[in-house]
């Protein structure tokens, strides 16, 4: 394997993601666990950058770290008595391990052929080597904008996403209000 700056960066981000992920599930302090979660998500955004998908990287930081992270921390603050957990592991360890392994196998089996088909790394690198100043990202964001407003494209999913968000908001308000009353 060729050892370039990108590989080094990849390993740093991958280790950040995985290492923090392990800390999330093993740390006794829930607040620390949520901070590790944010760190892990940051690693994922780094991986997006390496895949030349900076828009997704920014979305990852903005939505996952900026909004969902805060949501999780607020949720922790709402649950009194969860600050210090005596028991990190519960009785379903074995079942969880089985499910995790099965999920990994399923993902590996379904995704590997797709990735192979795309001839992913080589193709992209060849393209970039040919035209190093290619404005790859601008095109992707621009294309994304065209596709989500195209009658024959993804305009319906785009609107449904909005509906879904509205439904989520209304649902959460209903549940939270009931809780209070």
């Amino acid at each position: 394997m060729e050892f370039t700056y990108e590989t080094v960066a990849f390993f740093i981000f991958a280790l950040t993601t995985l290492g923090s992920g392990i800390m999330v599930v093993t740390d006794e302090n829930l607040f620390h666990a949520s901070l590790y979660l944010l760190f892990s998500l940051f690693g994922v955004s780094g991986l997006f950058v390496l895949l030349v998908a900076p828009f997704l990287a920014a979305v990852q930081v903005l939505v996952y770290m900026g909004a969902i992270g805060i949501l999780i921390i607020f949720a922790i603050m709402l649950t009194r008595g969860m600050m210090k957990m005596d028991q990190v592991y519960n009785s379903q360890r074995v079942a969880a391990a089985v499910v995790a392994v099965l999920l990994f196998i399923a993902l590996a089996v379904t995704l590997t052929p797709i990735v192979d088909e795309l001839e992913f790394g080589e193709d992209l690198n060849a393209e970039l080597a040919e035209d190093p100043v290619a404005d790859v990202t601008y095109e992707t964001v621009n294309e994304l904008g065209k596709v989500i407003t195209d009658r024959n494209g993804f305009v319906l999913p785009f609107e449904v996403a909005s509906l879904l968000l509205t439904a989520a908001m209304i649902g959460a308000i209903v549940v939270a209000r009931e809780d209070e009353a």
Binding site: F55, V59, A67, L71, F74, G145, I148, S162, L165, A168
Partner: peptide, 24 residues
Amino acid sequence: YYLLALVFLVFDVEMVLLFPWAVA
């Protein structure tokens, strides 16, 4: 606070989806 964070999250996702729309 939780409700506020939730409303914000919904708007955040909305705005992120609007960025490609605005660019194109």
